[in-house]
Design a protein around this nucleic acid. Sequence first.
DNA 1: TAGATTGTTAATCGATTAACAATC
DNA 2: TAGATTGTTAATCGATTAACAATC
Lengths: 213, 213
Amino acid sequence: MDAKEISRAVIGRLPRYFRYLGDLKDQGIERVSSQDLSTIMQVTASQIRQDFNHFGGFGQQGYGYKVLYLYEEIGKILGLDHKHHLIIVSAGNLGQALGKYMNFERRGFIFRGIFDKNPALYGKIINNIAVRPMEQIGAFIKENNIDIAVLTVPRVSAVAVAEMLVFEGVRGIWNFADIDLKMPDRIQVENVHLSDSLMKLSYNVNNSTGIDH
Amino acid sequence: MDAKEISRAVIGRLPRYFRYLGDLKDQGIERVSSQDLSTIMQVTASQIRQDFNHFGGFGQQGYGYKVLYLYEEIGKILGLDHKHHLIIVSAGNLGQALGKYMNFERRGFIFRGIFDKNPALYGKIINNIAVRPMEQIGAFIKENNIDIAVLTVPRVSAVAVAEMLVFEGVRGIWNFADIDLKMPDRIQVENVHLSDSLMKLSYNVNNSTGIDH
DNA sequence: TAGATTGTTAATCGATTAACAATC
DNA sequence: TAGATTGTTAATCGATTAACAATC
Protein backbone atom coordinates (compact mmCIF):
# COMPACT_ATOMS: atom_id res chain seq x y z
CA MET A 1 0.00 0.00 0.00
CA ASP A 2 2.62 2.53 1.03
CA ALA A 3 4.70 1.08 -1.80
CA LYS A 4 2.97 3.82 -3.75
CA GLU A 5 5.65 6.45 -3.09
CA ILE A 6 8.66 4.33 -4.03
CA SER A 7 10.78 6.23 -6.52
CA ARG A 8 11.03 5.24 -10.16
CA ALA A 9 14.78 4.73 -9.74
CA VAL A 10 14.27 2.09 -7.07
CA ILE A 11 11.58 0.25 -9.02
CA GLY A 12 13.80 0.27 -12.06
CA ARG A 13 16.46 -1.65 -10.15
CA LEU A 14 14.17 -4.35 -8.75
CA PRO A 15 14.09 -6.56 -11.87
CA ARG A 16 17.86 -6.62 -11.90
CA TYR A 17 18.02 -7.67 -8.25
CA PHE A 18 15.43 -10.29 -9.04
CA ARG A 19 17.53 -11.64 -11.89
CA TYR A 20 20.72 -11.90 -9.84
CA LEU A 21 18.92 -13.46 -6.88
CA GLY A 22 17.34 -15.99 -9.23
CA ASP A 23 20.81 -16.93 -10.44
CA LEU A 24 22.13 -17.30 -6.90
CA LYS A 25 19.12 -19.41 -6.00
CA ASP A 26 19.69 -21.64 -9.03
CA GLN A 27 23.29 -22.08 -7.96
CA GLY A 28 22.02 -23.32 -4.60
CA ILE A 29 23.42 -20.37 -2.67
CA GLU A 30 21.38 -19.79 0.47
CA ARG A 31 22.76 -16.63 1.96
CA VAL A 32 24.04 -13.34 0.60
CA SER A 33 25.25 -10.10 2.17
CA SER A 34 24.81 -6.65 0.68
CA GLN A 35 28.59 -6.67 0.30
CA ASP A 36 28.53 -9.89 -1.77
CA LEU A 37 25.75 -8.56 -3.97
CA SER A 38 27.59 -5.28 -4.30
CA THR A 39 30.58 -7.12 -5.73
CA ILE A 40 28.70 -9.21 -8.27
CA MET A 41 26.23 -6.52 -9.33
CA GLN A 42 28.63 -3.58 -9.38
CA VAL A 43 26.52 -1.26 -7.27
CA THR A 44 27.21 -0.01 -3.74
CA ALA A 45 26.21 -2.13 -0.76
CA SER A 46 24.67 1.01 0.65
CA GLN A 47 22.32 1.35 -2.28
CA ILE A 48 21.29 -2.27 -2.02
CA ARG A 49 20.39 -1.91 1.66
CA GLN A 50 18.58 1.35 1.04
CA ASP A 51 16.60 -0.15 -1.81
CA PHE A 52 15.50 -3.21 0.14
CA ASN A 53 14.57 -1.11 3.12
CA HIS A 54 11.99 0.79 1.18
CA PHE A 55 9.90 -2.35 1.51
CA GLY A 56 10.79 -3.26 5.09
CA GLY A 57 13.60 -5.35 6.50
CA PHE A 58 14.37 -8.46 4.52
CA GLY A 59 17.69 -9.21 6.18
CA GLN A 60 19.12 -10.23 9.53
CA GLN A 61 21.85 -8.26 11.20
CA GLY A 62 25.11 -10.11 11.40
CA TYR A 63 23.91 -12.67 8.85
CA GLY A 64 22.79 -11.03 5.63
CA TYR A 65 19.84 -12.00 3.44
CA LYS A 66 18.34 -15.39 2.75
CA VAL A 67 18.52 -15.68 -1.04
CA LEU A 68 15.31 -17.60 -1.56
CA TYR A 69 13.28 -15.40 0.77
CA LEU A 70 14.60 -12.19 -0.77
CA TYR A 71 13.99 -13.53 -4.26
CA GLU A 72 10.39 -14.36 -3.43
CA GLU A 73 9.74 -11.06 -1.69
CA ILE A 74 11.04 -9.03 -4.62
CA GLY A 75 8.93 -11.19 -6.91
CA LYS A 76 5.88 -10.28 -4.82
CA ILE A 77 6.74 -6.59 -4.88
CA LEU A 78 6.95 -6.81 -8.67
CA GLY A 79 3.56 -8.48 -8.68
CA LEU A 80 4.90 -11.65 -10.28
CA ASP A 81 2.85 -13.77 -7.91
CA HIS A 82 -0.31 -12.41 -9.54
CA LYS A 83 -1.44 -13.72 -12.89
CA HIS A 84 -1.79 -11.18 -15.68
CA HIS A 85 -3.81 -12.02 -18.75
CA LEU A 86 -2.18 -10.58 -21.81
CA ILE A 87 -2.89 -10.06 -25.50
CA ILE A 88 -0.64 -8.96 -28.34
CA VAL A 89 -2.12 -6.36 -30.64
CA SER A 90 -1.01 -6.72 -34.21
CA ALA A 91 0.64 -9.91 -35.41
CA GLY A 92 3.38 -8.35 -37.50
CA ASN A 93 7.02 -9.37 -37.28
CA LEU A 94 7.54 -8.05 -33.81
CA GLY A 95 4.17 -9.15 -32.42
CA GLN A 96 4.70 -12.70 -33.63
CA ALA A 97 8.27 -12.79 -32.37
CA LEU A 98 7.26 -11.62 -28.90
CA GLY A 99 4.50 -14.21 -28.79
CA LYS A 100 6.93 -17.00 -29.58
CA TYR A 101 9.98 -15.74 -27.78
CA MET A 102 8.98 -14.09 -24.54
CA ASN A 103 8.03 -17.09 -22.45
CA PHE A 104 5.45 -14.99 -20.70
CA GLU A 105 4.25 -17.84 -18.51
CA ARG A 106 7.53 -17.93 -16.64
CA ARG A 107 6.80 -14.61 -14.98
CA GLY A 108 3.11 -14.91 -14.27
CA PHE A 109 1.86 -13.54 -17.58
CA ILE A 110 -0.63 -15.63 -19.48
CA PHE A 111 -0.57 -15.19 -23.24
CA ARG A 112 -4.25 -15.35 -24.18
CA GLY A 113 -4.67 -13.84 -27.62
CA ILE A 114 -3.12 -12.13 -30.60
CA PHE A 115 -5.00 -9.85 -32.99
CA ASP A 116 -4.47 -8.35 -36.41
CA LYS A 117 -6.52 -6.52 -38.99
CA ASN A 118 -4.95 -8.42 -41.89
CA PRO A 119 -7.27 -11.34 -42.87
CA ALA A 120 -4.31 -13.23 -44.34
CA LEU A 121 -3.11 -13.78 -40.79
CA TYR A 122 -6.38 -14.95 -39.23
CA GLY A 123 -5.98 -18.40 -37.79
CA LYS A 124 -2.20 -18.44 -37.98
CA ILE A 125 -0.90 -20.19 -34.88
CA ILE A 126 1.57 -18.29 -32.70
CA ASN A 127 2.71 -20.23 -29.66
CA ASN A 128 -0.54 -22.28 -29.63
CA ILE A 129 -2.74 -19.23 -30.08
CA ALA A 130 -4.58 -18.46 -33.31
CA VAL A 131 -4.49 -14.91 -34.67
CA ARG A 132 -7.95 -13.34 -34.37
CA PRO A 133 -9.53 -10.48 -36.31
CA MET A 134 -9.23 -7.06 -34.72
CA GLU A 135 -13.02 -6.71 -34.60
CA GLN A 136 -13.25 -9.36 -31.90
CA ILE A 137 -10.88 -7.62 -29.54
CA GLY A 138 -13.37 -5.69 -27.41
CA ALA A 139 -15.51 -8.71 -26.56
CA PHE A 140 -12.39 -10.82 -26.04
CA ILE A 141 -10.89 -8.42 -23.51
CA LYS A 142 -14.04 -8.44 -21.41
CA GLU A 143 -14.71 -12.18 -21.63
CA ASN A 144 -11.15 -13.12 -20.79
CA ASN A 145 -10.33 -10.52 -18.21
CA ILE A 146 -7.38 -9.20 -20.13
CA ASP A 147 -5.43 -6.62 -18.17
CA ILE A 148 -2.29 -6.14 -20.26
CA ALA A 149 -1.90 -5.44 -23.98
CA VAL A 150 1.36 -5.62 -25.89
CA LEU A 151 1.16 -2.90 -28.50
CA THR A 152 3.14 -3.63 -31.66
CA VAL A 153 1.06 -1.70 -34.20
CA PRO A 154 2.73 0.91 -36.43
CA ARG A 155 3.28 4.36 -35.04
CA VAL A 156 0.43 5.94 -37.00
CA SER A 157 -2.25 3.73 -35.49
CA ALA A 158 -0.76 3.44 -32.00
CA VAL A 159 -2.74 6.21 -30.32
CA ALA A 160 -6.12 5.14 -31.69
CA VAL A 161 -5.53 1.47 -30.89
CA ALA A 162 -4.28 2.28 -27.39
CA GLU A 163 -7.37 4.35 -26.69
CA MET A 164 -9.60 1.58 -27.91
CA LEU A 165 -7.80 -0.95 -25.69
CA VAL A 166 -8.21 1.27 -22.66
CA PHE A 167 -11.86 1.83 -23.49
CA GLU A 168 -12.32 -1.94 -23.61
CA GLY A 169 -10.80 -2.37 -20.17
CA VAL A 170 -7.07 -2.96 -20.45
CA ARG A 171 -5.07 -1.57 -17.50
CA GLY A 172 -1.50 -1.79 -18.74
CA ILE A 173 0.13 -1.26 -22.11
CA TRP A 174 3.54 -2.58 -23.05
CA ASN A 175 4.25 -0.17 -25.87
CA PHE A 176 6.63 -0.87 -28.73
CA ALA A 177 5.34 1.90 -31.00
CA ASP A 178 7.77 4.76 -31.39
CA ILE A 179 5.52 7.36 -29.87
CA ASP A 180 4.61 8.64 -26.41
CA LEU A 181 1.12 7.55 -25.43
CA LYS A 182 -0.79 9.99 -23.27
CA MET A 183 -3.16 7.83 -21.29
CA PRO A 184 -5.22 8.46 -18.15
CA ASP A 185 -3.26 8.08 -14.90
CA ARG A 186 -5.00 4.86 -14.02
CA ILE A 187 -3.51 3.22 -17.13
CA GLN A 188 0.06 2.01 -16.84
CA VAL A 189 2.26 2.40 -19.90
CA GLU A 190 5.70 0.90 -20.20
CA ASN A 191 7.57 2.07 -23.30
CA VAL A 192 10.26 0.07 -25.00
CA HIS A 193 11.28 2.55 -27.72
CA LEU A 194 13.77 0.37 -29.58
CA SER A 195 14.83 3.21 -31.88
CA ASP A 196 15.77 5.39 -28.94
CA SER A 197 17.86 2.59 -27.55
CA LEU A 198 19.69 2.10 -30.84
CA MET A 199 20.35 5.83 -31.11
CA LYS A 200 21.94 5.82 -27.67
CA LEU A 201 24.20 3.01 -28.84
CA SER A 202 25.05 5.09 -31.89
CA TYR A 203 25.98 8.03 -29.69
CA ASN A 204 28.19 5.89 -27.49
CA VAL A 205 29.96 4.16 -30.35
CA ASN A 206 30.61 7.50 -32.02
CA ASN A 207 31.85 9.20 -28.88
CA SER A 208 34.01 6.43 -27.53
CA THR A 209 37.71 6.72 -28.06
CA GLY A 210 38.12 3.03 -28.75
CA ILE A 211 40.57 2.93 -25.85
CA ASP A 212 39.96 1.18 -22.53
CA HIS A 213 40.46 3.20 -19.38
CA MET B 1 35.27 15.93 -28.24
CA ASP B 2 34.26 17.49 -24.94
CA ALA B 3 30.92 15.74 -25.50
CA LYS B 4 32.67 13.00 -23.54
CA GLU B 5 31.49 14.20 -20.12
CA ILE B 6 27.81 14.63 -20.97
CA SER B 7 25.72 12.84 -18.39
CA ARG B 8 23.83 9.67 -19.13
CA ALA B 9 20.56 11.40 -18.25
CA VAL B 10 21.06 14.04 -20.95
CA ILE B 11 22.04 11.49 -23.61
CA GLY B 12 19.01 9.45 -22.70
CA ARG B 13 16.76 12.36 -23.57
CA LEU B 14 18.30 13.19 -26.94
CA PRO B 15 16.46 10.53 -28.97
CA ARG B 16 13.16 11.83 -27.65
CA TYR B 17 14.02 15.40 -28.63
CA PHE B 18 15.05 14.07 -32.00
CA ARG B 19 11.72 12.31 -32.42
CA TYR B 20 9.64 15.38 -31.56
CA LEU B 21 11.73 17.65 -33.71
CA GLY B 22 11.36 15.23 -36.60
CA ASP B 23 7.58 15.42 -36.17
CA LEU B 24 7.63 19.22 -36.12
CA LYS B 25 9.83 19.24 -39.20
CA ASP B 26 7.44 16.88 -41.00
CA GLN B 27 4.59 19.20 -40.12
CA GLY B 28 6.48 22.02 -41.80
CA ILE B 29 6.99 23.97 -38.59
CA GLU B 30 10.12 26.10 -38.87
CA ARG B 31 10.58 27.60 -35.45
CA VAL B 32 10.10 26.39 -31.90
CA SER B 33 10.77 27.89 -28.47
CA SER B 34 11.79 25.94 -25.39
CA GLN B 35 8.40 26.92 -24.01
CA ASP B 36 6.56 25.35 -26.99
CA LEU B 37 8.61 22.18 -26.72
CA SER B 38 8.03 22.14 -23.00
CA THR B 39 4.29 22.06 -23.59
CA ILE B 40 4.25 19.29 -26.16
CA MET B 41 6.93 17.14 -24.53
CA GLN B 42 5.85 17.59 -20.92
CA VAL B 43 9.25 18.53 -19.57
CA THR B 44 10.40 21.90 -18.23
CA ALA B 45 11.62 24.57 -20.62
CA SER B 46 14.56 24.97 -18.30
CA GLN B 47 15.63 21.38 -18.77
CA ILE B 48 15.35 21.69 -22.53
CA ARG B 49 17.61 24.75 -22.61
CA GLN B 50 20.08 23.16 -20.21
CA ASP B 51 20.21 19.99 -22.29
CA PHE B 52 20.83 21.78 -25.57
CA ASN B 53 23.45 24.00 -24.02
CA HIS B 54 25.63 21.05 -23.15
CA PHE B 55 26.44 21.00 -26.85
CA GLY B 56 26.69 24.75 -27.45
CA GLY B 57 24.05 27.27 -28.39
CA PHE B 58 21.58 26.08 -30.97
CA GLY B 59 19.08 28.87 -30.47
CA GLN B 60 18.72 32.60 -30.98
CA GLN B 61 17.67 34.88 -28.18
CA GLY B 62 14.28 36.40 -28.73
CA TYR B 63 13.50 33.91 -31.48
CA GLY B 64 13.84 30.34 -30.30
CA TYR B 65 15.24 27.41 -32.24
CA LYS B 66 15.11 26.64 -35.94
CA VAL B 67 13.46 23.21 -36.06
CA LEU B 68 15.38 21.83 -39.01
CA TYR B 69 18.74 23.03 -37.75
CA LEU B 70 18.15 21.69 -34.24
CA TYR B 71 16.93 18.38 -35.64
CA GLU B 72 20.05 17.98 -37.75
CA GLU B 73 22.40 19.00 -34.96
CA ILE B 74 20.90 16.51 -32.54
CA GLY B 75 21.13 13.88 -35.27
CA LYS B 76 24.83 14.65 -35.59
CA ILE B 77 25.36 14.46 -31.83
CA LEU B 78 23.71 11.05 -31.88
CA GLY B 79 26.05 10.05 -34.67
CA LEU B 80 23.21 9.39 -37.11
CA ASP B 81 25.10 11.15 -39.89
CA HIS B 82 27.71 8.37 -39.74
CA LYS B 83 26.99 5.02 -41.32
CA HIS B 84 27.16 2.02 -39.03
CA HIS B 85 27.46 -1.46 -40.50
CA LEU B 86 25.43 -3.90 -38.49
CA ILE B 87 24.86 -7.64 -38.20
CA ILE B 88 22.26 -9.63 -36.30
CA VAL B 89 23.59 -12.58 -34.38
CA SER B 90 21.19 -15.48 -34.25
CA ALA B 91 18.23 -15.63 -36.58
CA GLY B 92 15.63 -16.82 -34.09
CA ASN B 93 12.22 -15.23 -33.70
CA LEU B 94 13.52 -11.97 -32.35
CA GLY B 95 16.54 -11.72 -34.63
CA GLN B 96 14.40 -12.24 -37.71
CA ALA B 97 11.75 -9.81 -36.51
CA LEU B 98 14.32 -7.09 -35.85
CA GLY B 99 15.84 -7.62 -39.28
CA LYS B 100 12.48 -7.18 -40.96
CA TYR B 101 10.96 -4.60 -38.70
CA MET B 102 13.59 -2.13 -37.61
CA ASN B 103 14.13 -0.16 -40.77
CA PHE B 104 17.74 0.32 -39.82
CA GLU B 105 18.60 2.27 -42.95
CA ARG B 106 16.42 5.16 -41.85
CA ARG B 107 18.81 6.05 -39.07
CA GLY B 108 22.14 5.46 -40.71
CA PHE B 109 22.48 1.80 -39.84
CA ILE B 110 23.20 -0.58 -42.67
CA PHE B 111 21.93 -4.11 -42.17
CA ARG B 112 24.68 -6.25 -43.64
CA GLY B 113 24.30 -9.76 -42.32
CA ILE B 114 22.46 -12.21 -40.12
CA PHE B 115 23.98 -15.36 -38.65
CA ASP B 116 22.80 -18.53 -37.00
CA LYS B 117 24.25 -21.86 -36.00
CA ASN B 118 21.18 -23.78 -37.15
CA PRO B 119 21.80 -25.16 -40.70
CA ALA B 120 18.06 -25.25 -41.35
CA LEU B 121 18.13 -21.46 -41.48
CA TYR B 122 21.12 -21.03 -43.79
CA GLY B 123 20.10 -19.13 -46.89
CA LYS B 124 16.77 -18.00 -45.53
CA ILE B 125 16.17 -14.45 -46.73
CA ILE B 126 15.51 -11.80 -44.11
CA ASN B 127 14.97 -8.33 -45.54
CA ASN B 128 17.07 -9.19 -48.64
CA ILE B 129 19.86 -10.74 -46.61
CA ALA B 130 20.52 -14.49 -46.50
CA VAL B 131 21.18 -16.14 -43.14
CA ARG B 132 24.81 -17.25 -42.97
CA PRO B 133 26.46 -19.93 -40.84
CA MET B 134 27.96 -18.76 -37.58
CA GLU B 135 31.42 -20.02 -38.65
CA GLN B 136 31.68 -17.27 -41.24
CA ILE B 137 31.12 -14.47 -38.80
CA GLY B 138 34.72 -13.59 -37.96
CA ALA B 139 35.81 -13.19 -41.56
CA PHE B 140 32.59 -11.35 -42.40
CA ILE B 141 33.06 -8.76 -39.65
CA LYS B 142 36.54 -7.94 -40.88
CA GLU B 143 35.75 -7.91 -44.57
CA ASN B 144 32.65 -5.78 -44.17
CA ASN B 145 33.80 -3.39 -41.52
CA ILE B 146 31.00 -4.33 -39.16
CA ASP B 147 30.95 -2.13 -36.08
CA ILE B 148 27.64 -3.03 -34.44
CA ALA B 149 26.17 -6.42 -33.57
CA VAL B 150 22.60 -7.04 -32.52
CA LEU B 151 22.75 -9.86 -30.01
CA THR B 152 19.64 -12.03 -29.88
CA VAL B 153 21.17 -15.34 -28.81
CA PRO B 154 19.81 -17.14 -25.73
CA ARG B 155 21.06 -16.08 -22.35
CA VAL B 156 23.35 -19.07 -21.89
CA SER B 157 25.44 -18.35 -24.96
CA ALA B 158 25.33 -14.54 -24.74
CA VAL B 159 28.63 -14.00 -22.92
CA ALA B 160 30.66 -16.34 -25.13
CA VAL B 161 29.17 -14.95 -28.35
CA ALA B 162 29.66 -11.36 -27.20
CA GLU B 163 33.31 -12.01 -26.41
CA MET B 164 33.81 -13.60 -29.81
CA LEU B 165 32.19 -10.62 -31.52
CA VAL B 166 34.44 -8.21 -29.67
CA PHE B 167 37.48 -10.30 -30.48
CA GLU B 168 36.52 -10.14 -34.15
CA GLY B 169 36.32 -6.35 -34.05
CA VAL B 170 32.79 -5.25 -33.22
CA ARG B 171 32.63 -1.97 -31.26
CA GLY B 172 29.03 -1.86 -30.12
CA ILE B 173 26.56 -4.49 -28.96
CA TRP B 174 22.82 -4.01 -28.92
CA ASN B 175 22.02 -6.67 -26.36
CA PHE B 176 18.66 -8.43 -26.09
CA ALA B 177 19.91 -11.31 -23.95
CA ASP B 178 18.68 -11.17 -20.39
CA ILE B 179 22.09 -10.84 -18.82
CA ASP B 180 24.59 -8.08 -18.04
CA LEU B 181 27.56 -8.27 -20.35
CA LYS B 182 30.85 -7.22 -18.84
CA MET B 183 32.87 -5.94 -21.75
CA PRO B 184 36.03 -3.83 -21.97
CA ASP B 185 35.40 -0.08 -21.67
CA ARG B 186 36.10 0.53 -25.31
CA ILE B 187 33.10 -1.65 -26.23
CA GLN B 188 29.70 0.02 -26.04
CA VAL B 189 26.83 -2.12 -24.82
CA GLU B 190 23.22 -1.02 -24.95
CA ASN B 191 20.88 -3.39 -23.12
CA VAL B 192 17.24 -3.80 -23.95
CA HIS B 193 16.22 -6.27 -21.22
CA LEU B 194 12.63 -6.87 -22.30
CA SER B 195 11.86 -8.97 -19.22
CA ASP B 196 12.89 -6.18 -16.90
CA SER B 197 10.62 -3.82 -18.76
CA LEU B 198 7.67 -6.18 -18.48
CA MET B 199 8.30 -6.65 -14.76
CA LYS B 200 8.19 -2.89 -14.26
CA LEU B 201 4.83 -2.86 -16.02
CA SER B 202 3.68 -5.65 -13.72
CA TYR B 203 4.73 -3.62 -10.68
CA ASN B 204 2.90 -0.56 -11.90
CA VAL B 205 -0.29 -2.39 -12.80
CA ASN B 206 -0.29 -4.11 -9.42
CA ASN B 207 0.40 -0.96 -7.46
CA SER B 208 -1.95 1.38 -9.25
CA THR B 209 -5.23 2.15 -7.61
CA GLY B 210 -7.12 2.08 -10.89
CA ILE B 211 -8.20 5.64 -10.14
CA ASP B 212 -7.09 8.71 -12.05
CA HIS B 213 -5.65 11.59 -10.07
C1' DT C 1 13.58 50.39 -29.51
C1' DA C 2 10.58 47.01 -26.96
C1' DG C 3 9.49 42.28 -26.54
C1' DA C 4 10.75 37.75 -26.52
C1' DT C 5 13.52 34.09 -25.53
C1' DT C 6 17.92 32.19 -25.01
C1' DG C 7 22.18 31.04 -22.33
C1' DT C 8 23.81 30.58 -17.87
C1' DT C 9 24.24 31.13 -12.94
C1' DA C 10 22.21 30.17 -8.55
C1' DA C 11 18.81 27.60 -5.67
C1' DT C 12 16.41 23.50 -4.86
C1' DC C 13 15.41 19.00 -4.86
C1' DG C 14 16.17 14.11 -4.90
C1' DA C 15 19.07 10.25 -5.14
C1' DT C 16 23.34 8.09 -3.81
C1' DT C 17 26.90 7.16 -0.61
C1' DA C 18 29.06 7.09 3.90
C1' DA C 19 28.87 6.25 8.61
C1' DC C 20 27.52 4.07 12.59
C1' DA C 21 24.39 2.49 16.17
C1' DA C 22 21.35 -1.48 16.69
C1' DT C 23 21.18 -6.28 16.92
C1' DC C 24 21.49 -11.00 15.32
C1' DT D 1 30.50 -12.47 24.20
C1' DA D 2 32.73 -10.88 19.84
C1' DG D 3 32.12 -10.39 15.03
C1' DA D 4 29.43 -9.44 11.32
C1' DT D 5 26.14 -7.14 8.89
C1' DT D 6 21.83 -4.93 8.75
C1' DG D 7 18.73 -0.81 9.20
C1' DT D 8 18.81 3.97 9.28
C1' DT D 9 20.43 8.64 9.84
C1' DA D 10 23.44 12.13 8.10
C1' DA D 11 26.53 13.95 4.40
C1' DT D 12 27.46 14.33 -0.31
C1' DC D 13 26.74 14.50 -4.86
C1' DG D 14 24.37 15.30 -9.12
C1' DA D 15 20.45 16.54 -11.63
C1' DT D 16 16.50 19.51 -12.10
C1' DT D 17 14.28 23.83 -11.71
C1' DA D 18 14.09 28.78 -11.08
C1' DA D 19 15.65 33.20 -12.04
C1' DC D 20 17.54 36.69 -14.63
C1' DA D 21 21.01 39.13 -17.34
C1' DA D 22 22.43 39.00 -22.14
C1' DT D 23 21.01 39.70 -26.68
C1' DC D 24 18.56 38.84 -30.96
